[in-house]
Design a protein around this nucleic acid. Structure first.
Lengths: 354, 354
DNA sequence: CTGAAAGCGCTTACAG
DNA sequence: CTGAAAGCGCTTACAG
């Protein structure tokens, strides 16, 4: 069996309370005794029982990370970013992958977090009223990533502004027929992934600002995935008139769109320009022009916010702080002025060609 | 504060032991009493304290998953696959991301797992002697994914046979000048990612079987990443004679190679055929011919093995079972017979063209 | 600086 | 079927 604090105490000829204090570097132990106890502890291979310590103190040293689906690039990045910060603080991370709608319901119904974590990081979930209440009732700090929250701390990106930047880039290249590959809320709400309607709003706002009317067939929505992007782009290709450029609400959708356009015998950016959103690891390989949104940085920021709340003396009221992460356009080779239109160019129009 | 079992007992006018038994569906409680207690418990919102239960029983209901880096596609898949199975069994998953070499050392040094998990899943780590001992000393079931283990349960793929399949595909197309993009062990040992030398062995074995001599510049090793694949391919492109086909030990390396070949003005598969290994989510988009190795399935299998050990009555001796997952070649558009060589073809040589 | 003892909230023999 | 009590292994006032 494993060695208990009592055995260490016996061997060191002190009380267990002294061992406890010595090992945790609490004041009130003479330097000599402390060192002797430490030596004996490592010699005996003593490690305090987490369960017992938790029961006695009420703190778990654990942070729960709730994520819809660990296979998505976005969540992997966040988990890594947040995990690094959490680990550095000596905390454990408990990973809850919600999976499907049923898993999500069960998770919130059974109050799985109760007594298992000191804080919660919620990734890209659009929380229902009931879910929000469940989390609040935990009375531990909660930080939400991906959207502003009125109840919890939150870390997010200005999706609308970023989308405007992407679309304005297309406008500046001379495009007037610009399609949208949006994330389908209805489909995603099941897995709980957060669909940023703000990106759609940014797109619309930007077009409106340029005096361009929206065209129905040019706005296609689907799941946030390669397959979803491919499906949406396929539909768009059967519109009465084709757009000359497309803004995809995620890089994965953009990847799917790229594949479909090429499969249709057209070229990107020759026939259709595509700009994505994420700056996925593979975007450089595919030459995708996109919006970078430092996802790992978002994860780190969220974890930082949570640690602040955890370390602050305020017992249960977490500081509902908000933190914004910057975005920027990354130019690669999937965008170019539309055929026969160089209105906005004074120099070589084709310098972006690849 | 949160409600304790004692309060439920008072309210139900029974002893706490009865509440405990009733709520956990243990025998020895009359149906009426049990139901009454359950009703009262939900009404009061009672949830047993995990810390107290763990201390009393010694079981944590938690499985630790050790992973080098959560941002890698491979690990995301495994986490999801294993997580689904673990969750279905009602267990929590504690995620330990090792990060760099230092993190890895610290993790094993501080015995982080002691008392925190009932079982461990180790993903793609080449464990040192000392690490193996640390894990064994935990005296809980351990399952290793990615390589056969003599101490623990393990789930893996026949890398050598799979590599042979990939290379034979190239040979069958008529290629004789076949390069290798291998994973660099030295670089990866730091993050602990497992480099499968068996894939290299399969490549060599297959060439040898075909009576083809190895050419030095055609075997390039680098980190298992897009960047690594790009770097390795770049070096290969400066060999005295170019290969007509390349086997990449991972899809991510293949992606990097694809980018480099195209950036050099050559075409895939026109000038160089490429076959990868993984069947990454994005491989269909890039049209990469590759070896599928059902990574989620591997994760599920590993979790299954662990659960068997956890549920088996054998107290500490885990069944050191082994489970193999099948692989198969997935044909897409990155491979084709070499220019001017249709030796092995009787029908249309270019049917694979895209 | 050090120790004895209560307490954290469960579970599990043991009696009845 | 039900209850009283010991025990899980720590931490933390409280005395000294």
């Amino acid at each position: 069996m494993t060695v208990r604090i009592e055995e260490v105490a016996e061997r060191a000829r002190v009380a267990v309370s002294t061992v406890s204090r010595a090992l945790r570097d609490l004041p009130g132990v003479s330097t000599g005794t402390r060192q002797r106890i430490k030596d004996i502890a490592v010699e005996m291979g003593y490690v305090a029982s987490p369960s017992a310590a938790r029961l006695a103190t009420g703190v778990t040293g654990t942070v729960a990370v709730i994520v819809p689906d660990a296979t998505k690039w976005f969540f992997g990045q966040v988990i890594a970013g947040a995990g690094a910060v959490l680990r550095a603080s000596g905390r454990d991370v408990l990973l809850y992958e919600l999976g499907d709608e049923e898993g999500r319901l069960r998770f919130f119904a059974e109050q799985r977090l109760r007594g298992r974590a000191d804080g919660v990081l919620v990734l890209s979930l659009r929380l229902t009223e009931a879910e929000t209440r469940t989390l609040r009732d935990l009375e531990i700090p909660v930080v939400v990533l991906g959207r502003r929250s009125e109840y919890f701390g939150s870390v997010f990106v200005d999706d609308r502004a970023a989308a405007r930047t992407a679309v304005r880039h297309l406008l500046n290249l001379g495009h007037r027929r610009i399609g949208l590959l949006g994330i389908n809320d209805d489909a995603e709400v099941t897995t709980g992934s957060l669909a940023p309607p703000s990106r759609v709003a940014g797109y619309r706002q930007c077009l409106m600002g340029a005096g361009i009317d929206e065209v129905d067939g040019w706005q296609q929505f689907d799941t946030n995935s390669v397959a979803g992007g491919a499906a949406a782009m396929t539909r768009m290709l059967s519109a009465p008139v084709l757009p000359t450029a497309v803004f995809a609400a995620s890089d994965e959708m953009a990847f799917g769109a790229l594949g479909v356009v090429r499969a249709a015998g057209m070229s990107v950016p020759g026939d259709i320009s595509i700009v994505g959103f994420d700056n996925h690891d593979l975007s450089p390989v595919l030459g995708l022009t996109t919006i970078d949104q430092d996802v790992q940085g978002q994860g780190r920021a969220a974890a930082g916010l949570l640690l602040e709340a955890l370390n602050s003396s305020s017992p249960t009221r977490p500081p509902q702080t908000t933190r914004t992460v910057d975005t920027h356009l990354v130019l690669r080779h999937s965008t170019r002025p539309p055929r026969g239109n160089q209105t906005h160019f004074t120099a070589e129009p084709d310098k972006e060609e690849n």
